[in-house]
Computed example of a mutant assay.
Amino acid sequence: MKFLEESILPPPTDQRLKSFERACRVELPSEFHDLLKTYHGATPITNVFHGKGREFLIERLLCLLEDPASDETHGWYDIEVVLSQIDTRLTDDENLVGANVIPFASLFAGDFVCLDLRNQGKQSVVVWLHEESEDFNPVFLNVAGSLSEFFSMLSE
């Protein structure tokens, strides 16, 4: 997997990661932490992948900024900003407190690649299809069983 070096943002602090996990009431896998620490907000060079007979184009990985409102360039790509805009469209449980589907990459045309933790913390990677989803009725395509499997799809 290759990324434009100049697009990689300074990594989030451990405190910022823990704050995000507390807010979402989730414990993210170490692989997700590593992704944010290594390729924070980066634009992939190899950015096309396939899932369920569809082709998807990654615009950029999302980030966790200290103050998204003060960053006009990257603020819209902050994971918490994205979650605040689409959270009711990512869950089918209106009583859920926190998050169990975490977007980590924006796709061309408004969809997102997400880490899915709904299966008792067992991770998988899904594409959230925004045009097909409604509040509390999300539509996902399962594309990989783990983050490493997903990123290996970008190396092909």
Rank of each mutant, 00 (worst) to 15 (best):
E27Y: 10
V48T: 12
C24Q: 15
D92Q: 06
G110H: 08
D34H: 11
F56R: 08
R54E: 13
R16L: 13
C63W: 00
S7E: 11
V26S: 12
T73I: 12
F49C: 13
L36M: 15
S19W: 03
K52A: 09
E134S: 07
A109F: 14
D87L: 01
D111P: 09
S124T: 03
E59A: 11
E149R: 01
W128L: 07
D92V: 02
A99S: 15
R89H: 06
Y77S: 07
Q85S: 04
T38Y: 10
L61D: 08
S30L: 14
L115F: 13
V125K: 04
E27R: 14
F56E: 10
P138K: 13
G145C: 01
F49K: 06
F151W: 00
P138D: 10
R16W: 10
H74M: 09
N142Q: 05
L96I: 05
D71G: 01
S148E: 05
R89E: 01
D87S: 10
D93L: 07
D14V: 15
F20R: 12
P11G: 10
S124L: 01
D71L: 04
R22A: 14
C24E: 12
F108Q: 15
E27L: 15
S152D: 07
W128I: 07
I86D: 00
E21A: 15
T91S: 12
Q15G: 11
K2Y: 05
L62F: 04
W128S: 00
S7Q: 08
Q85G: 03
G121H: 08
L115T: 12
R16V: 12
R54C: 07
S7I: 11
I86P: 03
M153S: 08
